[in-house]
Design a protein around this nucleic acid. Sequence first.
DNA 1: AAGTATATATCGGCGGCCAGAGTATGTCCA
DNA 2: TGGACATACTCTGGCCGCCGATATATACTT
Lengths: 109, 109
Amino acid sequence: MSQRLQEPSFLILSSLAGGAKHGYGIIKEVQELSAGAVSMKVGTLYGALDRLAAEHLIEVDREEIVDSRLRRYYRLSADGAVLLSTEATRINTQANVALRRLRVAGMHP
Amino acid sequence: MSQRLQEPSFLILSSLAGGAKHGYGIIKEVQELSAGAVSMKVGTLYGALDRLAAEHLIEVDREEIVDSRLRRYYRLSADGAVLLSTEATRINTQANVALRRLRVAGMHP
DNA sequence: AAGTATATATCGGCGGCCAGAGTATGTCCA
DNA sequence: TGGACATACTCTGGCCGCCGATATATACTT
């Protein structure tokens, strides 16, 4: 049953763990956090947002109109927090295993 | 240009960072490492092995016949080690960001 | 004789991401 | 004043990589 998240979905949940945000705000944050390295595509984002909401991992927090433009804010749900927690722990372990092995093999600084 | 790896591919590279292995051996190791939680599908494995080899991230190490059964061993290439290293570092950071945020939000033990 | 473990090959299907275009409003600057 | 750029969401076609299943073959166990 254990759900698996791909990177973009993981990053969305992670972004929302820092507080409710609207779509465009998530894109900006992901870009900043990765120092411009990762640019999430709009198609990916809004598609993922719909899917995550359908799975009750995120919820619509509120909607605002700013300068005649809609902002739909999402927040992390309780289920989403649990999933993000278990997933983050899991991939953290996996990353550490990889780094340790590379070090032992002399392939990592 | 920065290549992205999905989990199964990442796990294969990680497994090979621990030494050359053959396909079935990789499946067994991944299963053991995750305490039976993750079972890599054979279709996924051999497909990924072919792709990774085509991208020169892994190489055929040697082939053996054991009990009339072929064993094709793969090893991590230099390129593969570099990629695994950068990827592991990157996702490690991402996982830590997520865990820190959950902790701050009081959503993580 | 049947089931389990070892070992690889192959193939249809599909979910999720990519890439791009579309719609709209407001700001900055030349 | 008009062109570029930022903000903000929508939609669609395509494709890549994983899933699930089946196939083949040998050896060991029950």
